[in-house]
Each structure stands twice: as C-alpha cells, then as structure tokens.
C-alpha cells in the first residue's frame, strides 16, 4: 500500500471547520495557491496514514452545486471533472438541515462520500441528538461525528477514510 496516491476532496459550507480538518490532516504539508484562472484560493496538502500517502484538496466553501458563485462552480467542476476518489463533506451538526443541502447534491453527483459530522460537541450542548446510524443508512455513506477544534473524532475520521478507500479499491467504484 505504499505510494498509492488517492485524491481526497474536502467540501462543505463556509464556517463548518473545513480548514480545521484540513490543517489537522495535512499539518504543515500544505500548498496554498489559486485555482487556475480564478481568483479563489486553492489549498492542497499531503496526508500520510498507515504507509499510504493521500492528496487532499480543500475545496472552497459553498452552499450548493449550482452555478451562482465561483466557489460553487469550482467545487462542482472539481468533483465532476477531476473525479476525486473520495469527497469528505464536512457539515455543521448544529445546523444540519442547511448543511445537508450541499451534501445531498454532492451525493447526487454519484461520487464516494463520507459525511464528517463536525461540531458534534456544540450540537450536543444544544440538546441536538442525531441518530448517526440512521443518517448513514438513509444517505448510504459512512457518517462520523467529530469535534475537529477539540481534536475529537479525528482518529475515527482517518480510519473511516482509509477503510472507505480500501473498500472502493476492492469493491466497485463509480468510475467508468
């Protein structure tokens, strides 16, 4: 499993802690530039886990996959054209309903998705109790609760990502 470079994209609404997850995975191994021909920041990094190396792209924060803003277009084009091996959709557990609007559209694009249920601690503090396994069942994707700012659930997320990539490698993927 050495030197398999999978591409993982991080997607999500603004203010969901996407950057915190990106920083946690890549550490200082990041490169910040611009999307070609666009005036939107592109963050790319490398993440090493269990002897494998992964390329991580932090997509710009977007609320939808329509073509109303540069951020949405970049996110959509990357997912459809670059066909990342996995899209980790970071959602704010405390604002789940609004955040799912983007997540659902990414799922409709028929890519492999993991839902990172970030800020679970804040949701819990507000008395929001989420049935994670039911959510996972309905969406048909792995769902991992986490609190990235406190470093909680990051290990789970890493493991889920690795497992998911292994299962797509062995099982059927959505690629033609």
């Amino acid at each position: 499993m050495i030197n398999t470079t999978h591409t993982i994209a991080l997607a999500g609404n603004p203010n969901t802690g996407k950057s915190t997850v990106f920083n946690a995975l890549t550490g200082l191994d990041q490169h910040v530039g611009n999307w070609p021909g666009k005036t939107v920041e592109k963050k790319e990094g490398r993440w090493k886990y269990n002897g494998s190396e992964y390329r991580i792209i932090d997509l710009p924060g977007a609320y939808s996959l329509s073509s109303f803003s540069m951020e949405e277009i970049i996110t959509r084009d990357f997912i459809l054209e670059e066909k990342p091996d996995l899209v980790v959709v970071v959602v704010d557990a405390a604002n789940l309903e609004r955040n799912l609007y983007l997540a659902v559209q990414i799922l409709e694009a028929e890519v492999n998705v993991i839902l990172a249920l970030n800020m679970s601690d804040i949701a819990a503090a507000r008395g929001i109790d989420i049935d994670v396994s039911h959510l996972s069942e309905v969406l048909g994707v792995p769902v991992t609760p986490m609190a990235a700012r406190k470093g909680q659930g990051l290990d789970d997320l890493k493991q889920v990502i690795a497992d998911a990539l292994n299962s797509t490698k062995n099982g059927g993927s959505h690629h033609q």
Partner: peptide, 16 residues
C-alpha cells in the same frame, strides 16, 4: 461517539 458503517451503499443515491 458512535461511528456508522464504514462502507458505501452500492445503490446510487436518489431523491424522489
């Protein structure tokens, strides 16, 4: 914290 299943459903995701 509880995690969910770690695999993908093979049927594509569809909203009615």
């Amino acid at each position: 914290m509880t995690a969910s299943t770690n695999t993908f459903d093979n049927t594509p995701f569809v909203i009615d």
